[in-house]
């Protein structure tokens, strides 16, 4: 178990190294952030002075070594654009993204699993067919387009929900959360639903497929033959068995929700870390891009680990082999 975790971590460290190198070379190849940040009225000497002040005058390999050296002591550098330590910048934006992703995931799970279960149990009913048609629809709609449609409908035409931004926040454990205020929830509703739509469809389809498959299994047939009521068969045997793939997918998809929040955050002006990434790429704010990747890698390692643990807890057949990951 421990070796397994260690191997995972080592692999992620390698990945991080590769990614950071890629970002360094890439940003270097694209251009100089100073060209973008400095006032156009600055003259040549002024530009050179700023380049030197940001440490961008050194050769690339030297810049990278300096970065590595500092990173090992926990300093990922300061943002070129904000001058704040890049990691602080990311962490200050993280709660907003986390609550958006959690809310989206919650919506997807709360609606997706029951709908999928129903569609799997009564595959030929009209409702089941509409659910499946709807899921294909949700699967195919471009997120950014839906986001604007939602704003048009609920904010502009109906005036029910605020169009963009994050609502009032309250501090809890020293972090600002908006899910605990009414205003915050109103702001959260549309972006969370927008982000959830794709995962909702995915979960419906997955649950239905797993249910269909589970119903064909011998243990279900056996349970039915034994005279167990359908409700018990579904509630205990089917549900327990379909949870394994679903939990895995939920875990993995949570990561993808975090990533896709970039799009939703852009549309709804949600001050999360995805929006920060896009903005940072636009001004070539290298320390922030690298720090974002680091944070994301850590979050993902954590999520994947959690998924594996839950997976092995749910399914005793699964052993966490040190050789390669499950799946």
């Amino acid at each position: 178990m421990l070796t397994y975790i260690l191997r995972r971590l080592a692999a992620s460290a390698v990945l991080l190294l590769v990614m950071s190198l890629l970002v360094f070379v890439g940003v270097y190849a694209i251009g100089n952030p100073v060209d973008l940040l400095i006032s156009p009225e600055a003259d040549q000497k002024e530009i050179e002075r700023v380049i030197a002040a940001l440490g961008l005058d050194k050769p690339l390999w030297q810049q990278y070594l300096i970065f590595l050296e500092r990173a090992l002591s926990g300093d990922l550098g300061r943002s070129f654009a904000f001058h704040t330590p890049a990691i602080d910048l990311i962490l200050s934006r993280m709660p907003a993204t986390l609550e958006l992703a959690l809310a989206a995931m919650l919506i997807a799970i709360a609606a997706g699993i029951p709908l999928g279960l129903y569609a799997g149990l009564k595959p030929d009913s009209l409702i089941a067919k509409s659910i499946m048609a709807g899921s294909i629809f949700g699967f195919s709609l471009p997120t950014f387009w839906v986001g604007l449609m939602l704003i048009m409908l609920f904010s502009v035409h109906l005036g029910w929900l605020p169009s963009t931004g994050r609502g009032e926040t309250v501090a809890l454990f020293g972090v600002q959360w908006s899910i605990f205020t009414w205003d915050g929830l109103r702001h959260l509703a549309m972006p969370a639903f927008n982000l959830a739509l794709f995962k909702l469809s995915l979960l419906i389809r997955l649950t239905r497929a797993s249910t269909c498959e589970a119903l064909l299994q011998d243990y279900v047939k056996f349970a039915r033959a034994k005279g167990l009521r359908m409700r018990r068969v579904v509630g205990v045997h089917v549900l327990k068995n379909i949870m394994i793939p679903i939990v895995t997918v939920i875990g993995l998809e949570f990561g993808s929700v975090l990533a896709f929040s970039i799009v939703t955050e852009t549309i709804f002006a949600w001050p999360g870390m995805g929006k920060l990434l896009i903005d940072s790429i636009q001004v070539l704010d290298r320390p922030v891009v690298v720090a974002y990747l680091l944070v994301i890698v850590i979050v993902f390692v954590f999520i994947n680990l959690l998924v594996d643990l839950v997976y092995s807890a749910l399914d005793p057949r699964v052993r966490l082999a040190p050789g390669h990951a499950a799946g």
Binding site: I151, V156, S163, T164, G165, I267
Partner: peptide, 18 residues
């Protein structure tokens, strides 16, 4: 002052009275 860099979002915020 609300930072609304996305054009449609800024207009929508005005239309919605935010």
């Amino acid at each position: 002052f609300r930072v609304l860099t996305s054009d449609p979002s800024r207009v929508a915020a005005l239309l919605a009275g935010d």
